[in-house]
């Protein structure tokens, strides 16, 4: 492992001078051996991302346990969103991005030739920072994925032939909206345009849309940052419930939120380094790295 080289690179953080390279090394060892019960849902090894000359992520390695909530926290520009977007290869959309390293989802390497991006994104769903429902009806928003994948056939042709999946669609839409804690609010207006919903409702609709494809992993990029406190509370409750069935990875810059909702927390600090990763309680109450403690207690960041 070349982690040692990286950890010696000076960062602008004032705390880094107080931490010797040696202790940093031991810290890294401790989170590498972080006890993941069972198979990790996502295993990341030496992930590096460059945007042109900008080194956005440096040698990140972490195992994410399944059916739990993992929070990624850190100051803005620390690379946590970049990291998240590597897990379903949405960074491929950015032409200047160069990605090296290994990410395994469900035991399969996603950065190799011949990977089917469509299939990958079916397994790793994503919810974005700002709600982005399609300008279609609520029903169509939820059933969009399965329809496009051909799992729900409601096309004109199949309706003409009388073999459409209208009932299955009905059931799926209801189930996903219930899972996203939205069904009660929209049950009587499923045909309305989704853009007419409030921000919080739109975001839960986006979660329902992601759930409809039945992913293994659900990535959330600051899902509540554009919402008011009440809507935020609903989303937070929802994330806790989702963790019973899904592996949830959520990016947030709100440390209280991370502490409330997550099982384990990863702290990224300026320069794209993963500085600490462990049980949420432990990270917040007795962090091993001085820099993380400074960040959590508000001394910098």
């Amino acid at each position: 492992m070349s982690n040692a080289d990286v950890s010696h690179q000076s960062t602008p953080a004032p705390a880094s001078t107080t931490t010797t390279g040696e202790t940093e090394e031991t810290v890294r060892e401790s989170w590498r051996t972080y006890d993941v019960t069972g198979e990790p849902a996502v295993a990341v090894e030496d992930l590096n991302v460059h945007y042109g000359d900008d080194h956005a992520l440096k040698d990140v390695s972490m195992d994410i346990p399944e059916e739990s909530v993992t929070a990624l926290i850190g100051p803005s520009g620390c690379g946590k969103s970049t990291f998240l977007r590597c897990l379903n290869r949405m960074n491929d959309r950015i032409k200047a991005a160069r990605i090296d390293g290994s990410v395994e989802v469900g035991g399969e390497e996603i950065y190799q030739d011949g990977v089917d991006l469509v299939e990958l994104r079916k397994r790793v769903g994503m919810v974005f920072q700002a709600p982005n429902p399609f300008p279609k009806s609520i029903r169509e928003n939820v059933s969009y994925g399965p329809r496009k994948h051909g799992d729900l056939d409601t096309s004109l042709l199949s309706r003409l032939l009388g073999r459409d999946d209208a009932e299955a669609e009905e059931a799926l839409v209801e189930q996903c909206l219930r899972d996203a804690a939205l069904y009660e609010e929209v049950a009587d207006r499923l045909e309305d345009n989704a853009l007419g919903l409030s921000g919080g409702q739109q975001q839960r609709l986006c979660i329902a849309r992601a759930l409809a494809v039945d992913p293994d992993v659900l990535l959330m990029d600051e899902p509540a940052s554009a919402l008011d406190p009440i809507a935020t509370a609903k989303i937070e409750d929802l994330i806790g419930e989702l963790a019973e069935d899904y592996t949830v990875v959520v990016v947030t810059h709100n440390m209280q939120q991370a502490a409330r909702i997550s099982d384990q927390t990863a702290v990224f600090l300026t320069g794209g380094e993963l500085v600490e990763y462990g049980d949420t309680d432990q990270v917040f109450e007795s962090p091993e790295s001085q820099r993380v403690e400074d960040y959590i207690t508000g001394k910098f960041g």
């Binding site: 011949g114 397994r123 729900l152 299955a168 799926l172 409809a212 039945d214």
Partner: peptide, 13 residues
């Protein structure tokens, strides 16, 4: 949900 079909993530030869 059982409605979703899955295919291989990585194509073979």
């Amino acid at each position: 949900m059982s409605t979703v079909t899955r295919h291989a993530l990585v194509a073979g030869e």
